[in-house]
Simulated scan of single mutants.
Amino acid sequence: MLSKGINPTGQPVMKEQGVKMWKKLDWRDYIVYLAFIGVIIYFSISLHDEGFTSTENILNIVRQTAMISIMGVAMTFVISTGEIDLSVGSTTALASLMAALALQAGFGVIGGLAAGLATGIVVGLINGLLITKVVIPSFLVTLGMMGIVKGLAMWITDTAPVPILDPTFNFVFGSGDLGPIPILLVWTLLATVLAHVVLRKTSFGRQTLATGGNESAAKFSGVKTNRIKLWVFLATGLAAGFAGVLYAGRMQAGRFTFGEGDELSVIAAVILGGTSLFGGIGTVIGTLIGSLMIGTINNGLIIMGLDVSQQMMVKGLIILLAVAFGKKAINK
């Protein structure tokens, strides 16, 4: 905070403190915002004639990134504790199928939502217990869970899609618009605001960052780190389950292919947004911007005519660049 007066050197305190604050600023702290602006400018100029800047295309980017953003804000908590969850993509597929099957069985909109969310919670709970109670590294647990859940999603319907004919479900959880605003944008903003408040304004958020920053010190300070980790994996499971519900509502069906490769996009969004891969530093707003940036790049590459394999290469490159230039991640 700046203050008036003269320090022992004869210089105004306000000026001295202002210089210190200026020196603390580092462009790498804002790389995701600078990069996002740069990406928008580049595609706006190079793809202007192809309609990149049209309102419809911008809204499409929002719709396409909604599920990644929602899973990303939850993944921010997991990575902030120094852990990782590779099972989110497969969980969305299983959740979409369970929601579709519940609707098909006549349980209605609430039943479909509950089935999708419960699927995610169960997967998150199993992940959390294996990590905290059996003490298996999160990378191995969630890698194995990714295969198990994916196989289960393929097995329960014999790889067949399950159509959803309930117009209310499809409107509320995917294809609806509130005036000009896509319903998916509303869900994204609600998830982002909630996660931001929890991370920045609650003791749970502070304990999450403390667990990732120095787990031993956090334990000595009274933080129940295993409980924190269990809760953050439950949160990612819940977010993945809800993302599956949104996939089902948007595509009006449950499919085992939903969420395929999303774990890469989610992790890229979180790291690119400024959350440290090694834990202790997290930013929900940065994750949202990272997600939108990845979605914008994907959209621009599609308009340019690049295929899926080239888009995957770009996603991998984004992760490498994020870690290479992310000062917070490197200096952790």
Rank of each mutant, 00 (worst) to 15 (best):
W187Y: 11
T225H: 13
E260N: 12
A217E: 01
L199A: 05
D166F: 10
A269Q: 01
A195L: 07
L246A: 12
S175W: 11
G179K: 08
G222Y: 04
N214T: 01
T211E: 06
H196D: 04
P167L: 04
S276F: 01
V197I: 15
T192D: 07
G286E: 08
L165A: 14
G261P: 08
G222K: 08
P167S: 06
R206H: 12
W231L: 09
A210M: 03
I271S: 03
V284S: 06
T188C: 09
P167C: 04
V266R: 00
S216F: 14
T168F: 12
L165I: 11
R227H: 14
E260Q: 13
T275M: 12
P182M: 12
L189A: 09
A239I: 10
A253L: 15
A210V: 03
T257N: 12
L209Y: 01
E215V: 09
V223S: 01
F233H: 01
L234V: 06
K224C: 04
F233V: 00
G179V: 10
V223W: 04
R250S: 13
D262I: 03
G286R: 03
I267D: 08
G261A: 15
R200M: 14
G273A: 12
L209G: 00
A268M: 01
L190S: 02
F242E: 06
L238W: 09
L272W: 13
F242Y: 13
D177L: 08
G249S: 12
A269R: 01
G261E: 13
L194F: 14
S265P: 00
A243G: 10
T225Q: 11
L178C: 01
T283R: 05
V186A: 05
V172Q: 06
L264Y: 10
V284I: 15
L165W: 14
G249T: 10
G273R: 05
T168W: 10
N226F: 11
K201V: 04
V193Q: 02
S221W: 06
L190K: 00
G286K: 06
A240Y: 03
P180C: 04
I271G: 02
P180K: 05
K219G: 02
S175E: 13
N170W: 14
D177V: 07
I281K: 11
L277Q: 01
A191L: 04
I228T: 11
G249H: 11
P167G: 01
F233L: 02
G254S: 10
W187H: 08
V245D: 14
S276G: 02
V198P: 02
A195M: 09
L178S: 05
E260P: 00
T275E: 13
V186G: 02
D166E: 06
L246W: 11
K219D: 02
F242M: 12
G249F: 15
A269C: 04
H196M: 07
A218C: 10
I285W: 15
G249V: 13
K201R: 09
F204N: 05
F220P: 00
T283S: 10
A253R: 15
E215M: 12
A218P: 04
I228A: 06
T236K: 05
V197K: 00
G274F: 04
L194N: 00
Q207G: 13
F256Y: 11
W187P: 03
G259A: 12
